[in-house]
């Protein structure tokens, strides 16, 4: 489903070139549960951004469902993000002036789906995540764990193939964090491909496959199908 070939991402810091990602080769099959770990600044977030088409690689190729994304234009990439990829962020990134349901409706608004269908699907998705009684609350009326559930609902409402989570528990207490991880794993059980970036070993250890990154390179890959 995902294939990275000799992927590079360089940043220009002053007159120095920093290799945030260097020579990454990675394959992720559909339905996998992958944890990306590594120290701060190792490039794991950059990898996630590249996977989510938010960042453009400086070199190499990124094949998503067999299509080389490096040749797609803004419009086509946006459409992929909209329909095939879901994001969950550490800081939730809910729009503060919108209610939980309106936040969940956002990707469907962008996709041009009818209002009635949007409301139905948003309510349904929130209900699946146990948020039926919080549909009309705004983010500032929700707890951290509830906000992250809304964010997850928003990420999966378009039924994407790939769910990317960047430190999804980083801003949550132990209990809500565990809750969120369970939800993500449930979604994975139902077939979604899950990639979680984390520095929490206990979370990483739950994943079926762990990729450890150091200085922009894959240091360890428990899946071991690198270079295939």
């Amino acid at each position: 489903m995902i294939e990275l070939r000799n992927l590079r991402r360089d940043f220009q810091v002053g007159d120095q070139t920093v290799h945030a990602l260097a020579d990454i080769n990675l394959r992720v099959a559909a339905g996998e549960y992958l944890a990306v770990t590594g120290p701060s600044g190792s490039g794991k977030s950059t990898l996630l951004n590249v996977l989510g088409l938010l960042d453009h690689p400086s070199g190499g190729h990124y094949l998503f469902e067999g299509r080389d994304t490096t040749t797609l234009d803004d419009q086509a990439q946006a459409e992929l993000r909209n329909r095939r990829i879901g994001f969950v962020f550490q800081f939730f990134h809910l729009v503060p002036r919108l209610t939980a349901r309106q936040n969940v409706e956002l990707p469907m608004i962008l996709a041009g789906i009818e209002p009635r269908e949007r409301a139905r699907r948003a309510s349904h998705t929130l209900a699946r995540l146990g948020m039926s009684d919080r549909v009309h609350h705004r983010p500032d009326q929700l707890s951290g764990g509830q906000r992250q559930r809304v964010a997850i609902a928003r990420a999966v409402v378009m039924q994407p193939a790939l769910l990317l989570a960047d430190e999804p528990t980083g801003n949550l207490d132990q209990a809500s964090g565990a809750d969120v991880i369970r939800i993500l794993e449930d979604l994975n059980q139902q077939g979604i491909t899950l990639v979680v970036v984390t520095h929490d070993q206990s979370i990483a250890s739950r994943a079926h496959r762990r990729v450890h990154i150091v200085d922009g390179r894959i240091d360890q890959d428990s899946g071991g199908n690198e270079g295939a």
């Binding site: 990439q77 946006a78 729009v95 962008l110």
Partner: peptide, 16 residues
């Protein structure tokens, strides 16, 4: 900016 970034992540192309 955060909202704009979010909209992009959710699939809004630049022209949206």
């Amino acid at each position: 900016t955060a909202e704009i970034g979010l909209l992009k992540a959710l699939g809004a192309p630049g022209r949206h």
